[in-house]
């Protein structure tokens, strides 16, 4: 692997409204320092992609943003959301996760019916009116472009759906909670091209109402759907800029090598 100077970086300023920002974020797995000084601002109602080679820390970084690394790794630094540091130990993490939803690499619907998958967490959050539940069920499935395919089978097991449908169900399940921010960890990497393009379309419509941060292996996907892109290498954020600039005029050498395929 080529040696790069990891301390140099180009991080653009976000002038738009921010959804979330990290300040000097460090992650340690035991003695292993996995993320170094991450300072990123994520714009509102945009899609931001995190790209980089396997093991560069992009998933680790993403999982910090809704505290999914609690008990897994030590996370130092600040994560500012609505003027609050959500990385503080005093924060109610369950509340954080209601505002910052997450969709995982492999579809993980609950072993329950389609309907129950969506409304289960809602009921747990104290929403009990039948109308409200029905409305959120329909809305979220429509937003995830799944409604037409499942509306007659809402009581069927979610496990009977195809992989792509399951993943859209997981997206629907997240947005039914009406979060502000949606974190997606390679949501399409286990899916076929048709399901992938459906998910991408879904994300394009969702960004009207949600700030989306997506980790992806797929550079074409990043360039197709995202507005901003951050490139990570060995736990360092090397470059952060608008997606067009990252892919056409990369400022840093590692970024240029990575997006042009000369990496490693």
């Amino acid at each position: 692997m080529k040696e790069y100077n990891l301390t140099d970086s180009y991080i653009t300023d976000i002038t738009e409204k921010k959804a979330l920002s990290t300040d000097n974020l460090q992650v340690y797995y035991g003695d292993n320092h996995a993320i170094f000084d991450a300072n990123l601002n994520f714009p509102r109602y945009k899609i931001t992609a995190l790209i980089g080679a396997s093991g560069c820390g992009k998933s680790t970084f993403l999982r910090c943003l809704n505290r999914m690394n609690d008990k897994v790794a030590r996370v130092d630094g600040e994560i500012m959301y609505r003027n609050t540091d959500i990385n503080s130990s005093k924060i109610n993490v369950y509340e954080v996760r209601k505002h910052i939803g997450m969709v995982f690499q492999r579809p993980n619907p609950f072993a329950k019916s389609i309907k129950e998958n969506i409304i289960f967490a809602l009921k747990n959050a104290g929403i009990n009116q039948k109308d409200e539940l029905e409305e959120r069920l329909e809305q979220s499935l429509k937003s995830a472009a799944l409604w037409d395919e499942v509306k007659d089978n809402l009581n069927k097991s979610a496990l009977a759906l195809s992989g792509g449908q399951q993943q859209r169900l997981c997206i629907a399940r997240s947005i039914a909670m009406k979060p502000d921010i949606l974190l997606l960890d390679e949501p399409a990497s286990a899916l076929d091209p048709i399901s992938t393009s459906k998910i991408e379309e879904t994300l394009q419509t969702l960004k009207k109402d949600y700030s989306i941060i997506i980790v992806t292996h797929n550079l074409q996907q990043a360039s197709r759907i995202s507005d901003y892109t951050a490139f990570l290498h060995l736990g360092h954020i090397i470059e952060y800029n608008s997606t067009v600039n990252v892919f056409t005029h990369p400022k840093m050498r590692p970024t240029e090598d990575y997006v042009s395929g000369n990496f490693g």
Binding site: R97, K98, F110, K112, A121, N124, C170, M177
Partner: peptide
């Protein structure tokens, strides 16, 4: 029961206890 199920529960703001009793235990 796969860990993915636990992560799904956690990411929706369920507590570990709720995740255990309402998602993992039934499965």
């Amino acid at each position: 029961v796969p860990d993915l199920q636990r992560e799904a529960g956690m990411s929706l703001g369920l507590s570990s206890w709720k995740t255990t009793t309402k998602i993992v235990l039934p499965a």
